[in-house]
Design a protein around this nucleic acid. Sequence first.
DNA 1: GTCTATACGATGATAGAC
DNA 2: GTCTATCATCGTATAGAC
Lengths: 214, 214
Amino acid sequence: MTRRSRTHQSTPSNEQAILDAALTLAVTAGYEGTTMAEVARLSGLPVGSVYWHFNNKEQLFSELIDYCFETWKADHTGPTNRDLLRRSIAGSAGGSVNPENKAEAFWILALLFALEKRLTGNLARERYLEVRKQMFELMVERVEPQIPDSVLAVDPEFGRKMVVLGRALTDGFYIAASSGDDIDFLEFADLSASAVEALIARRAAAVAADEEKQ
Amino acid sequence: MTRRSRTHQSTPSNEQAILDAALTLAVTAGYEGTTMAEVARLSGLPVGSVYWHFNNKEQLFSELIDYCFETWKADHTGPTNRDLLRRSIAGSAGGSVNPENKAEAFWILALLFALEKRLTGNLARERYLEVRKQMFELMVERVEPQIPDSVLAVDPEFGRKMVVLGRALTDGFYIAASSGDDIDFLEFADLSASAVEALIARRAAAVAADEEKQ
DNA sequence: GTCTATACGATGATAGAC
DNA sequence: GTCTATCATCGTATAGAC
């Protein structure tokens, strides 16, 4: 244990180079498919440096999750754009991820860690589960202002439900794109976005009708 | 190359034991995470037997895909039940797959092969892409009778679109379940199923309105 | 067809010079 | 902090007895 304390003040550039390399490899090769040697090669640093900056593979991936999360938090401020879901699905087209986009890349890591259940207990997977929870909370906070108050009064969880549905659709279409499904992602992006909007409108109408009866 | 020709007439039971073991491991550990030694151990056979029945890991997984596909084809005959989507999403709850259910397990393999793009060129991944196409064709054939003819006349691809959407939703909620999202899957199953039905109804109404104008 | 022993490469990780 | 050399282990695959 000759490692430095886990603070980021010293030479952040090499550490970032390693994280960027790991991210690029992870989104195409998965956790087991990403090797420390390859991470080193791609980052332009020797293996020793990787192990100086990160204790081991688990910790590297764990910090990779945080790295993406920090970027995501910085990007996703302010009220949600109505087109957010539409754009995220449309962006799936081709099934390739741009690792430059840390926020987007997080959700690919998410798919990896969700599926490899053998990694239960793995530091990185546990961190993923924790960060995912936090991201959902933040997304719910941003989506709720778009839900009519009358709906939330009846079903306080409705905002969360729309977030969950949006995530499921985005993940599902990313899988489709990665499987070479020959479909028009723009059309499905529109379809999904309008379906969610329709659900909100329908629920609002139902609540209004209910109140009428009172 | 001292292997037998690829026919299944001889001692199918051990071959099946190996496939079952591989399937169980694959759905929890992924492709890279599944080792031949572990497959052998779980099947109760020595490593040598595994390599006698299957040339290598790639071929084992390739045949695993076919194995699931055959079972799926046998199960999925006749017209679709309206509750199919509802049940497949509800079945995701907990994020665990029962490897006994080959048909369901196929879609977990699907997720694995969709994500590990490093496996491009891998026999098993190529086979997955091919089988996936075939399964979609079969699903479209079964769903189309449920779509009003008037809709299909205007948009012959509408049946396929609903199949794609249903698959995306099912995959997306499986990811959610595997990530420990604490949601009511039965509710989302209902929500998704009714959303798809609403889309069909809405499209039918739109087509009818259009014809009115003619 | 079954099984044991083993070759061989790849991978995670460390030691220690600079 | 950087880098080279190296180790121990594991994983795929094979050889060959039975």
